[in-house]
């Protein structure tokens, strides 16, 4: 128990440090890049729920981000709603759409479901581009008001950072906790063995749809954050390529842990900044990187870290384990 408290304290300290340091010592440019990464991080958490917990490859994230983004843009521009109402509206709208779409698409299993989400992204992009009255088409919608709560209005990139930081943290905590709930276990069961799951009383279809809705709500949140962060939304943001990049982000860092997803999002967003001279080859590196990753580190950087720390703990007998069953048998096994 003591160790758990220490662990929590360390995490809180790191987060607090980040919250203070990033906006104060970084340049305006770096904060802007970090803000962009945080927007995508929230969407990638949806991939964490779908793929990491539930084992379903879905490319629909970007579409639900789009739905959330346009909902937020319309609510704030046309109805003049404050930020919090926009966010809530986006999440509910994206969630409802996810319920309807998920109920249809999840009748397909495995790879065929994956493909149907690709089709969804294409249809949605067509709609986003052509429904000009609601989306502004390829020219997009500009002049979307910044983040605000009450009379406080986010004017600078640093202000935006605080909003995004809080939203990202809350979403991450929710997703982290979700893994240990009964829903998280049902998802793991669906991922590992659908038949065994059914015999354990898990409604496989329903569990999948619920995961899809959660991912949809997170994506909706991400989309809403996006428009208020950039004050602009255009249909070219919601293309299939962007969806693959997000899946790659999540996989690189470690798709089954919010921390891993964070690592991946940061690395992929920062990489083009660090490797400016190699701009031309950057997507080639992504591709090759992903292929190698799948062979050598399917659980991503976070998975690798977990393996190493488990080995370390094992080596120095730091793990406390609960023994179940007779003591005699265990001593037998020790030999």
């Amino acid at each position: 128990m003591k160790r758990r408290i220490i662990k929590i304290l360390v995490v809180v300290a790191i987060l607090a440090l980040a919250a203070v340091l990033v906006p104060t010592i970084s340049s305006h440019y770096v904060i802007t890049v970090v803000n962009g990464a945080l927007v995508f991080y929230v969407g990638c958490l949806g991939i964490c729920v779908m793929l990491g917990y539930g084992g379903m490859v879905s490319f629909a994230t970007i579409t639900f981000m789009g739905l959330g983004a346009y909902m937020s843009a319309n609510l704030s521009l046309k109805a003049g709603m404050p930020f919090l109402v926009c966010v809530l509206g986006s999440m509910i709208f994206a969630g409802l759409c996810a319920l309807i779409i998920g109920a249809i698409l999840l009748r397909l299993s495995g790879t065929f479901f994956t493909f149907s989400t690709v089709a969804l992204v294409l249809i949605a992009h067509d709609l986003f581009t052509n429904l000009r009255s609601l989306t502004g088409g390829p020219d997009g919608m500009g002049g979307i008001p910044p983040f605000n709560i009450g009379s406080f209005v986010a004017d600078t990139a640093a202000d935006n950072f605080y909003f995004l930081f809080v939203a990202g943290l809350l979403a991450a905590l929710f997703v982290h906790r979700l893994k240990y709930t009964n829903l998280g276990r049902r998802l793991a069961a669906v991922r590992d063995n659908e038949i065994a799951a059914a015999t354990m009383g898990v409604d496989v279809y329903r569990t999948k749809v619920v995961a899809f809705i959660i991912a949809g709500v997170l994506s909706g949140l991400s989309g809403s954050l996006m428009v208020h962060n950039y004050h602009f939304v255009g249909s070219s943001s919601f293309v299939f390529d962007q969806s693959t990049t997000m899946v790659i982000m999540a996989m690189l860092g470690g798709v089954s842990h919010p921390g891993g997803v964070f690592l991946g999002t940061m690395i992929i967003t920062m990489l083009p900044e660090w490797l400016k001279p190699l701009q031309e080859y950057i997507r080639l590196f992504y591709g090759l990187g992903v292929m190698l990753l799948m062979v050598f580190m399917p659980t991503g950087l976070w998975g690798l870290g977990e393996q190493l720390s488990a080995r370390f703990k094992e080596r120095f007998h730091l793990t406390r384990k609960t023994l179940i069953g007779s003591d005699d048998a265990s001593s037998e096994e020790m030999i």
């Binding site: 490859v57 495995g110 997507r283 992903v290 799948m294």
Partner: peptide, 28 residues
């Protein structure tokens, strides 16, 4: 290399990576 992977999603993601690679190679 992935045929016995514990994660069924790995092959799909890997083919996705391959598609990016092929596209980039062609561009180069």
């Amino acid at each position: 290399p992935l045929r016995n992977s514990k994660w069924p999603a790995t092959i799909i993601i890997s083919t996705l990576g391959a598609s990016v690679v092929l596209k980039e190679v062609v561009k180069l």
